[in-house]
């Protein structure tokens, strides 16, 4: 299985990812503006990771979204559906026009993703601390079957305060799940404050190493760095991979940058128009 964009990708993977990341930011912000609901700060911190995965790394087939050989991606920070739905539409899992129904009555695009409504969603998330444990289960299935597919999961950083992640981290380390990659959207902000003011996570890399994981720290907005670390073959590593993607909430728009108010803040018309002028 190859990703649909493979031909473009061969020419210049990073340029394609950059284009898609910009499109995800613009389209998701339009969704949030129209719905007057959403989590745009986290959409923007995760946009580059999502673009890199869907346009540079994941082997998937939108025409056959449950192909058993597919790479899995689990969006554990399920509240950031603006960016997640935008990337799924961009990758071809459903028509872009559906994005205009975001959170409208009876829309398939609920505030949190539902596998039974939308192709491309692997598991229903929303409550935090669920995506990694489920991803560990998927990776174990692949390990038992000696299958080729990889499992990727994106969590927030505040989300790591949920204890379920650390249960799952133990199991993944114990079983040496090299087919599993956790990406942490390390924007250092949770709903109401900085993570380090709330329940501090640092030294975060040491924590994962102590649990038996291989850790890579990258600039989570550097498409080339993300592409290189995520597309490298895991074969022979003998450990699950934790990529700490250092990001900024609201990345790409000046007044949202690193601003906790934009966790679930929504723009008025003036803010929307200014953001669109900046996102070019």
């Amino acid at each position: 299985m190859t990703f649909p964009a493979s031909a473009e990708l061969r020419n210049d993977p990073v340029a394609l990812i950059r284009d898609k990341a910009l499109w995800i930011r613009r389209r998701s912000f339009q969704m949030v503006y129209e719905a007057q609901l959403g989590h745009p700060g986290g959409d923007f911190s995760a946009a580059d990771v999502l673009a890199t995965l869907y346009f540079g790394v994941l082997r998937h087939d939108p025409a056959d979204p449950r192909n058993p050989a597919r790479d899995r991606f689990v969006m554990s920070k399920g509240h950031c559906t603006g960016a997640f739905y935008a990337v799924l539409a961009a990758a071809g899992f459903f028509p872009e026009a559906d994005l205009s129904t975001y959170m409208q009555p009876l829309s398939k695009l609920n505030g949190h993703p539902n596998r039974n409504y939308l192709p491309g969603v692997e598991t229903n998330t929303g409550p935090l601390g669920h995506g990694l444990p489920v991803s560990v289960g998927i990776a174990i299935a692949g390990q038992i079957d000696k299958a080729d597919y990889r499992t990727f999961v994106l969590t927030g950083d505040g989300e790591l305060q949920e204890g379920s992640n650390w249960e799952a981290a133990l199991t993944a380390g114990h079983r040496k799940l090299e087919n599993l990659t956790l990406i942490i959207d390390r924007n250092r902000l949770q709903q109401g404050a900085r993570t380090e003011e709330t329940a501090s996570l640092d030294p975060l890399d040491d924590k994962w190493r102590a649990f038996g994981w291989h850790v890579e720290m990258v600039d989570g907005h550097d498409h080339r760095a993300l592409y290189e670390v995520l597309s490298a073959s895991p074969k022979g590593r003998g450990k699950p991979l934790c990529v700490i993607a250092n990001t900024f909430k609201g990345k790409g728009v000046s007044f949202m940058h690193d601003n906790v108010a934009w966790h679930h803040g929504v723009p008025n018309q003036e803010q929307y128009e200014q953001a669109m002028r900046e996102l070019v």
């Binding site: 692997e122 598991t123 444990p133 489920v134 289960g137 998927i138 299935a141 692949g142 249960e167 799952a168």
Partner: peptide
């Protein structure tokens, strides 16, 4: 191990893997 949240979630993941 002694981790009920994970035992259920891992079950869900294993089902995803067929």
């Amino acid at each position: 191990g002694i981790a009920e949240q994970t035992v259920v979630a891992v079950g869900a993941g294993l089902a995803n893997g067929g």
